[in-house]
Design a protein around this nucleic acid. Structure first.
Lengths: 91, 91
DNA sequence: AGGTTTCATCAACTCTAGTTGATTTATGCT
DNA sequence: AGCATAAATCAACTAGAGTTGATGAAACCT
């Protein structure tokens, strides 16, 4: 899931979809990129569980899955609270 | 920063450091991996601003930077709250 | 049916990121 | 000084992820 997020183009996608659902053709023109390229990255994000795809006729609308983002958020929160425990000198 | 997080070995490191500061030699033996490899990944994490390095004699202790984790958390929170706005039909 | 549009998929290529083993630097010990 | 240990760095190699252009499948229109 993190691997899916960690790529410039996919981050762009995430930011755009952060403003709500978009269809592929909107994304293609907004980001000005080859359709196969876009499709590839959408696939990666979808398979990582970060995106919903809603088909409507010949259009496909993608949107972010808030649950997935929430899951990551929780993990980061746990880490941040645990990581400050005092060190035991090594060796 | 996300790119730094999104790698299996670095995730392992993050999880271990999630339990508090560790020195490199501890990490080497705990994770059983080549020292140069470990050093490479620590560098990536450090340059991404995710880690603190504290030198003590010939040892170096690494720890997570809670602020960095918090920053990501905030970003995810914003996305999660924005991304549910209704769609405007395209084309 | 025939043509068009939207999107997904594929194979070939490119490039970036990670691995490996050797070397270097710095600290500490006897 | 001489040696050992901890960690960083480097160059050569490898592998995986991303790109590109072409092709394919499905929905819609006239």
């Amino acid at each position: 899931m993190l691997k899916a997020l960690a790529e410039p183009i996919r981050l762009q996608l995430i930011e755009v979809l952060g403003n709500g659902e978009r269809c592929v053709c909107e994304l293609t023109s907004e980001l000005g990129m080859a359709q196969s390229k876009l499709s590839f990255h959408l696939r990666v994000l979808k398979e990582a569980g970060l995106l919903n795809a809603r088909e409507e006729g010949r259009w496909v609308y993608y949107s972010l899955k808030p649950e997935a983002l929430q899951e990551l958020r929780t993990w980061l929160g746990d880490l941040a609270s645990r990581c400050t425990v005092p060190a035991s000198p090594c060796c």
